[in-house]
């Protein structure tokens, strides 16, 4: 029992450390951007950040975990869990190609220039999303400990931060950019900006709906420490949306010089 509790507190602690490292790297990113805006350095930092999220928040290693003796019983929860995990990750791989394609479009059309955007707002929404990932991880960890109340609190904070990100992008950043002359139909840069942020915001929105569903179901007494696949799925999906932003943020706000 004590060793179990130890590992639980460990993962809460791990979540905090991961968040601090990610926040630090984001600061480093910003610093690189205002000093030399090197494509190579910024891409490297983005990949490191994404790798950290994929490993410590999305727990990709769970895909390769050895299964117990019930693995061949296709009606067992353990088998279904492992199968669902694989399915979800394949979906994420597929979706990643969509966002990869958008990045290709961005670099093909804009090269090493970037649109004129509100840096403070950009950093603000990025921070909100990063913080939401921290709380999402905390929510999942608490559910794995069987703490349903703690889960609901953390998941609700995640939802609010995610909502803040969504509203910040769509209802503050978009009108701002349009006011500054960056319109969807005015230039390829505008088109790319609204398409990338829009497609990402759409995924945030679906993630928010998913979060709303699991919070509601948790309040009605669903999920337990052992069986909470929906929570895990929502968590992994939410972190994936964060990973996408880890690449989109530098691609839109930091890399390259300001375009005309």
């Amino acid at each position: 029992m004590s060793s179990n509790e130890h590992s639980h507190s460990n993962s809460l602690f791990q979540g905090i450390v991961t968040f601090v490292v990610l926040a630090f790297l984001t600061a480093v990113e910003f610093f690189i951007a205002i000093t030399n805006a090197s494509l190579l350095l910024l891409t490297t930092v983005a990949f490191i950040k994404a790798g950290i999220v994929v490993y410590y928040y999305m727990h990709i290693y769970k895909l390769f975990e050895d299964e117990d003796e019930h693995a061949h019983d296709h009606n067992s929860f353990a088998w279904k869990l492992a199968t669902n995990r694989l399915g979800l990750w394949l979906f994420i791989v597929s979706d990643a190609f969509l966002f990869g394609g958008l990045l290709v479009a961005r670099f093909n059309l804009l090269g090493l220039t970037r649109p004129h955007l509100d840096q403070v707002l950009g950093l603000g929404v990025t921070a909100a999303l990063l913080l939401s990932s921290f709380f999402m991880n905390r929510a999942e960890t608490l559910m794995a400990q069987g703490d349903r109340k703690g889960f609901v609190t953390s998941a609700a904070i995640t939802l609010l931060l995610g909502l803040g990100f969504f509203l910040g992008v769509v209802f503050v950043e978009w009108p701002n950019a349009a006011h500054e002359g960056l319109t969807a139909s005015g230039s390829a840069a505008g088109a790319v900006f609204y398409m990338m942020t829009g497609m990402h915001a759409f995924h945030v929105l679906t993630g928010l709906i998913f979060l709303g569903i699991i919070i509601r179901n948790a309040l009605r007494g669903h999920y337990s420490a052992e069986q909470h696949w929906a929570v895990e799925a929502a968590t992994v999906y939410w972190h994936f949306v964060d990973v996408v932003w880890i690449f989109f943020y530098p691609a839109l706000y930091l890399i390259g010089r300001l375009g005309g």
């Binding site: 969807a184 139909s185 390829a188 790319v192 609204y194 398409m195």
Partner: peptide, 14 residues
């Protein structure tokens, strides 16, 4: 639909 000029050379598309 929205006039987003991804492929319109005149507006920087390709």
């Amino acid at each position: 639909l929205f006039g987003m000029p991804f492929f319109d050379v005149a507006k920087g598309g390709n």
